Amino acid sequence: MATSAVARETVFALRRQIAKIEGTLPERLAAPAGEGLRAGPGLDAAPEPDADVTIIRRGLAVASPDAFLATGVERLDAALSGGLPKAALSEIHGLETRNAGAVAGFVLSLVSLILRGQPLPVLWIGTSEIFREAGFPYARGLQGMFGIAPEQLLFSEAPKLTDALWVAEEAAKMTALAAIILEIRGSPQRLDLTATRRLHARAQNAGRPVFLLRQAGEAEPTAAPVRLIVSAAPAASRRTIAGSLAGSIGRPAFTVSIGKSRTALPGQFTLEWNPDEHAFEERKPREKRAENSVAVVPASGGRTDPAPAPGTVVAFPAFGSSAAISPTARDQPSRPQRPAHIGPRRAG
């Protein structure tokens, strides 16, 4: 009996440790009436010592609302069970290099929501390769678009991925930072489950979010409980008092897909960032395309002669020759050129 009790406590301790790593919480429930009870003559019913009344619930449904970073979009927050976890590793994924600007803009929007009411700085970590490819954020754009003061965003350019991971792990332990951003290109082998577990555990201990930006890489297993796939969405027309302004470019828009979450609920959303209110707004399906849109390249017109039919061979007179070519000979190659069209091409 003592051996089984010790084994059971060991299993419970392991479950609690796994729940802590995964960002879940243990919940103790009372045993159902009539189950796990042992009663004897003249004795009241008491819980049976062997009854397992500890249940580990997956998800953060029992966590406090302050544990999440709400995006303000009801459907997205509901699919994420409240929003992005504040004390955890979250993966923001861009499938192609051309989505680097959209991924960075989306993360800066999340940082803008985090920095409301707190003057703490944010550390952005990346390798020299990623900063050469994607560039650095523009200071005036940070202030005007996201309300982030330039002195609140710190950069750490590492020569190699190993150095960037080391800086991220050390920074994730600091409570003097509001958030840490680690930008990685591709699918490097060093960014495995072990590395992401260390980042996730340190983010939980410090109570700070760590955003992992994956640029132009395949989705791989990580310890991040949430993975969002972000790409650029077509911008709608600018809205004025008189209505939509034709031919203009409106607010930045993102297409956000849930690749991984605690609730395992899929979903795709089109979000617009309001730079005046510093908040997200979900675009309705009918607003996917701008009003009064026109073709990028206008259709050709005013041509006198149509293009020849496909497969027609056009012959030209010899240079300097003033002899007129008959209409019947225009569509056929000259006699010296005929063998070149009929015979096979010789190599060399």
Rank of each mutant, 00 (worst) to 15 (best):
I229E: 03
I229V: 12
V230W: 06
V230I: 14
S231E: 06
A232S: 12
A232D: 01
A232C: 08
A233R: 13
A233D: 01
A233T: 09
P234A: 06
A235N: 04
A235R: 14
A235Y: 00
A235F: 04
A236Y: 12
A236L: 14
S237R: 10
S237M: 12
S237F: 07
S237N: 15
S237T: 15
R238T: 11
R238W: 10
R239S: 06
R239D: 02
R239E: 06
T240H: 15
T240W: 15
T240D: 07
I241D: 01
I241W: 13
I241K: 12
A242D: 08
A242C: 10
G243M: 08
G243F: 03
G243K: 13
G243T: 09
S244D: 13
S244K: 15
S244Y: 12
L245F: 13
L245R: 14
L245K: 12
A246T: 10
A246V: 09
G247D: 00
G247I: 01
G247N: 06
G247K: 12
S248D: 00
S248C: 08
I249F: 09
I249S: 06
I249V: 14
R251S: 07
R251N: 11
R251V: 15
R251W: 13
P252Y: 07
P252R: 11
P252K: 12
P252G: 04
A253S: 13
F254H: 02
F254Y: 11
T255L: 11
T255E: 05
T255C: 10
T255K: 13
V256W: 06
V256Y: 05
S257Y: 05
S257G: 10
S257P: 14
G259D: 03
G259S: 07
G259C: 11
K260G: 03
K260A: 04
K260E: 01
K260R: 11
K260T: 06
S261F: 12
S261P: 14
S261M: 11
R262F: 06
R262L: 09
R262W: 03
R262N: 10
T263S: 09
T263A: 11
T263Q: 06
A264L: 11
A264M: 08
L265S: 15
L265K: 14
P266L: 15
P266N: 07
P266R: 08
G267N: 14
Q268W: 04
Q268S: 13
Q268P: 07
Q268N: 12
Q268H: 11
F269K: 09
F269W: 05
T270L: 05
T270S: 00
T270P: 00
T270A: 00
L271M: 08
L271K: 10
E272L: 12
E272C: 13
E272F: 06
E272Q: 08
E272I: 02
E272W: 04
W273L: 01
W273Q: 00
N274H: 03
N274P: 03
N274C: 14
N274W: 04
P275R: 07
D276H: 10
D276W: 11
D276I: 14
D276E: 02
E277N: 02
E277C: 03
H278V: 04
A279M: 01
F280N: 02
F280H: 03
F280P: 13
F280Y: 04
E281K: 11
E281T: 09
E282P: 02
E282C: 02
K284S: 00
K284E: 00
R286G: 00
R286L: 02
R286H: 03
E287W: 02
E287I: 02
K288N: 01
K288Y: 00
K288T: 07
R289W: 05
R289N: 03
R289Y: 04
R289K: 08
R289D: 02
